[in-house]
Each structure stands twice: as structure tokens, then as C-alpha cells.
């Protein structure tokens, strides 16, 4: 930890960091996320569960007052988990962070994101980080439960949980910066109420492009989200064809995957968020379930007690015109 912190003192140039990052990437391909995922291989890789991955906090974050950034990746897509990322470092290191190149993950190429992730791991003595992976199955369950929990509420609660986790460790928080979910004002109010003004909380629109620490959080989230999708282990014992794509419904690969992998009986595997209208529409093409009406099952028909009676003749208006109802 301390060593990592020291090395942060030396300023990277752009070139240095990309070369070094790439080398690390190749040698430590699994390590990048291995750190996040080391205890979650194979069987534990059951995507029905949420994962909370918080590497140890840098010592310096207990001593110095810290700035915290929170952002998410994968709110919109129909496939895969939603990932929340949190990053924190001493307020005094804010400038260092900016010089390292942390910015909005959406504006960075995947390779650049991986590099920055690598830098973050190298800088473990200065930058603390964590992610929470909310499985698509969990999101489906929330959205389709009898008491529905919408995605905004899930998001808010996740952010609250992550901040609380840092507090429990004793991280010295002075400011939390978040990207907004829903209305920024009311979100800020909700968070302030939750933490009773122990530290400053600011909710911003596009916080990930305004603040490097939120950008760093968005990179954590995005890298893990992409990794989850690329390495998805299907619990269902079925070979699914073609690429998942980005998981967004606008992605032609995702569209093709959804159209090509619909089982008429079993629907979709758990990677799909069933609460999405895209998914519901696709599922209309699958076989529908007919529920037998139980109530009338134990009630015998009244005809079974009485014999046939004399049927009255139809009205002459119909009989004279040979009008009959179709059988």
C-alpha cells in the first residue's frame, strides 16, 4: 500500500503510462479484474447474485480527508448487470488524479479504459476503489416484484450502501460527488438525509466528465461491466449463439442475439433483464401460459343434475328467414 502511494508521487507522462499500462495488461490480463474477482470464480460465478468487491482501502484514506466519486455503468441495456463504481482518494491528490487522465468512461476507448484501470491498481496506495455488481436477475426481480422497486431506487440504495461501506472502514470522507439518477436536487436531499450532513454531498449532471474522481469511478464500473458481459458464464445449460453485443437494445449484435436465442418454452436466460419492454415484447412470441381457472373446477355443471328440457322455438322472424346461428 505504502509503496503504491509513494510511486504516485512521481508524475506519469502520457507515454509512460500507456506503455506501462499495456505491459501490465498483457502480463496481468486476469489480474486487472482478478483483484476484483479473485474470490468469485466458477461456481460462485453464479450471476444470479450480486457481488460486492472492495479491495483494501489505502492507509492514507483513513488519515487524510478524502474526496469520493460514485458512478454507474449499464443502467440502460437489456443484457447483463448494472455496475456501480466508487473511487476515493485524499483531497490533496485531486490534481494528481486529473493529470493521470481519468475522465468520463464513455469518452474513452476500451483500451484506454483498461490502461487507466491498470494505473488505478498500481496506485492502490493512493486511490481506493470498489464496485457493486447488480445482477440482471436481481434487477428483473426488483422490477417485477409485487411491490416494484424501480431502477432509480435501486441505484440510490446502491450508492448509499457503498458510502456506508467506506464509513464502516473508517475512511475519512469530506466530499462525495455523484452523477445524478433522476432529479439531482431530490437525490441530493435524500443522501443528505441519509448521512445527516456528516460530510458534503454533491449530485451533478454529468459528474463523470466534470470530476476526475467520478470519472475514475465510472471507469471502474464500465470496465467491470464490460468484463462481466465478455466473460459471462451461462448458468443455463444451453449454447447460445452469436455475440451479446454491448447489451444496449440499439446494438445490432444485441438485437440479433435477442431474436436468435428466444426459447419458445423457457424464454431467455438470466442475463436478460426481464423488466425491460424490449424483452417483454420479444417474449410475446414465445408460448403463452394458460392458467386453469381453479374456482370452477370443483363446481360441477348444473346440467349434470337436470335432464334436457323442451327447447322453445325460435322467434318466427328468424325461422321464416331460415336464420340460424353458426354451430
Amino acid at each position: 500500500m505504502a509503496a503504491g502511494y509513494d510511486s504516485a508521487e512521481s508524475n506519469y507522462t502520457d507515454d509512460e503510462c500507456s506503455t506501462q499500462g499495456r505491459d501490465e495488461l498483457i502480463s496481468n490480463q486476469t489480474n486487472i479484474l482478478g483483484e476484483f474477482y479473485k474470490n468469485h470464480r466458477e461456481e460462485e460465478y453464479n450471476r444470479g447474485h450480486n457481488l460486492e468487491l472492495f479491495p483494501e482501502s489505502p492507509d492514507v484514506t483513513f488519515k487524510e480527508s478524502c474526496i469520493v466519486g460514485i458512478d454507474e455503468a449499464g443502467r440502460g441495456p437489456v443484457l447483463g448487470p448494472m455496475v456501480y463504481g466508487i473511487c476515493y482518494c485524499p483531497v490533496s491528490k485531486t490534481d494528481t488524479l486529473a493529470s493521470l487522465g481519468f475522465a468520463d468512461s464513455k469518452e474513452l476507448k476500451p483500451s484506454k479504459r483498461d490502461t487507466l484501470m491498470q494505473i488505478m491498481i498500481q496506485q492502490s496506495g493512493m486511490i481506493g476503489r470498489g464496485v457493486e455488481v447488480l445482477s440482471p436477475n436481481y434487477i428483473s426481480n426488483c422490477m417485477l416484484a409485487r411491490d416494484k422497486i424501480n431502477l432509480n431506487v435501486i441505484s440510490h440504495n446502491t450508492a448509499i450502501r457503498m458510502i456506508r461501506r467506506l464509513l464502516e472502514r473508517g475512511v475519512n470522507i469530506s466530499l462525495v460527488l455523484l452523477d445524478t439518477v433522476g432529479d439531482a436536487k431530490s437525490y441530493e436531499k435524500k443522501l443528505n438525509k441519509e448521512f445527516e450532513g456528516k460530510f458534503k454531498i454533491e449530485v451533478h449532471i454529468k459528474a463523470d466528465s466534470k470530476f476526475p474522481i467520478v470519472g475514475a469511478a465510472s471507469i471502474c464500473a464500465k470496465v467491470v461491466r464490460d468484463w462481466c458481459l465478455d466473460n459471462w458464464v451461462f448458468k443455463e445449460n444451453v449454447n447460445f449463439t452469436s455475440k451479446l453485443g454491448s447489451g444496449y437494445t440499439g446494438d445490432p449484435n444485441t438485437k440479433a442475439w435477442l431474436s436468435g436465442n428466444l426459447d419458445k418454452v423457457f424464454g431467455y436466460p438470466n442475463i436478460v433483464r426481464f423488466g425491460w419492454s424490449t424483452c417483454r415484447k420479444k417474449l410475446e412470441k414465445a408460448y403463452q401460459v394458460e392458467w386453469e381457472d381453479e374456482e370452477d373446477n370443483d363446481n360441477p355443471k348444473i346440467e349434470s343434475f337436470f335432464g334436457k328440457g323442451k327447447v322453445a322455438k325460435s322467434h318466427p322472424f328468424f325461422t321464416e328467414r331460415f336464420l340460424e346461428n353458426p354451430k
Binding site: E303, F306, G309
Partner: peptide, 13 residues
């Protein structure tokens, strides 16, 4: 307007 209804008629003993 009248309707042409095919109704079953039961004999109730």
C-alpha cells in the same frame, strides 16, 4: 332488436 339465441333448456324435475 331481437337476437336469435340458441339456449339449452333443462328439464327440472
Amino acid at each position: 332488436k331481437l337476437m336469435n339465441i340458441d339456449s339449452e333448456h333443462l328439464g327440472i324435475p
